[in-house]
């Protein structure tokens, strides 16, 4: 039942995974703080939130949801592939995941710059002339999607390291804790988005 490593030994898979799960809990609570703020203002300004959400492009939002869901599947499949010993396929699937993440970011980039063109960004004059509810909605929109996008970037870096490791063989059918944990992290990025998507895009 117990494991005894010395001061810097290799970490076994159950231990590493439990550590990752606990880290994911802290991530959930990090976003949880923002969800709490959202809930409070949404209850206070629900009509204005509806109007503001109308400004968002639900099509782009849906597309991004699809990207993330598919990428979640590909990263889960890459784990299956590495468990079965198919390193080539695993690497290919991780690369597809990174590509989908990149598409998500490109979409996000266009979405944000589009808003900027209309002068909708934190502290802008346009925003200040809007009602309080709309202003807070966009504040939350930028905080939440910004923090989420940061996590997407971190996830992309983690996955890229995995590509290198799979290629060099240090992630293989016997040692795949790194890929397993990166996949868990990537699923978390997906989880957060699953909540963000209806709360920001679908309340029109």
């Amino acid at each position: 039942m117990s494991v005894h490593n010395t001061h810097a030994e290799h970490i076994d898979s159950e231990t590493g995974k439990l550590g990752m799960w606990i880290f994911l809990f802290t991530e959930l609570f990090l976003f949880g703080g923002l969800f709490l703020v959202y809930a409070v203002f949404r209850a206070k300004y629900s009509a204005e939130f509806h109007i503001a959400a109308g400004e968002l492009n639900a099509f782009i939002g849906t597309m991004n949801t699809v990207f993330l869901l598919v990428s979640s599947m590909t990263v889960a499949m890459s784990l299956t592939a590495i468990q079965k010993g198919d390193r080539k396929l695993a690497m290919f699937l991780v690369l597809v995941t990174i590509l989908l993440a990149a598409l998500f970011m490109v979409n996000k980039y266009f979405e944000w710059t589009h808003k900027f063109e209309y002068g909708i960004y934190p502290g802008s004059e346009v925003l200040k002339n809007m009602s309080h509810g709309e202003l807070l909605f966009f504040g939350l929109y930028y905080m939440m999607t910004g923090l989420h996008a940061l996590h997407v970037l971190v996830g992309m870096v983690l996955l890229s390291i995995n590509v290198v490791r799979i290629k060099s063989g240090s992630v293989n059918s016997n040692h795949y804790l790194m890929l397993e944990n990166s996949a868990l992290y990537w699923h978390l990025v997906d989880l957060i988005w699953i909540f963000l998507f209806p709360l920001l895009y679908l309340i029109t």
């Binding site: 802290t26 991530e27 703020v37 934190p122 009602s131 202003l135 504040g139 905080m143």
Partner: peptide
């Protein structure tokens, strides 16, 4: 993590004037 995000919000409040805690902005 909750205080972490809260401190980030105060920083955003100072730098970006985001309005979560400012009654003048709702």
């Amino acid at each position: 993590p909750i205080v972490g995000i809260t401190l980030l919000m105060v920083i955003a409040e100072r730098v970006l004037n985001i309005g979560f805690f400012d009654p003048a902005l709702g």
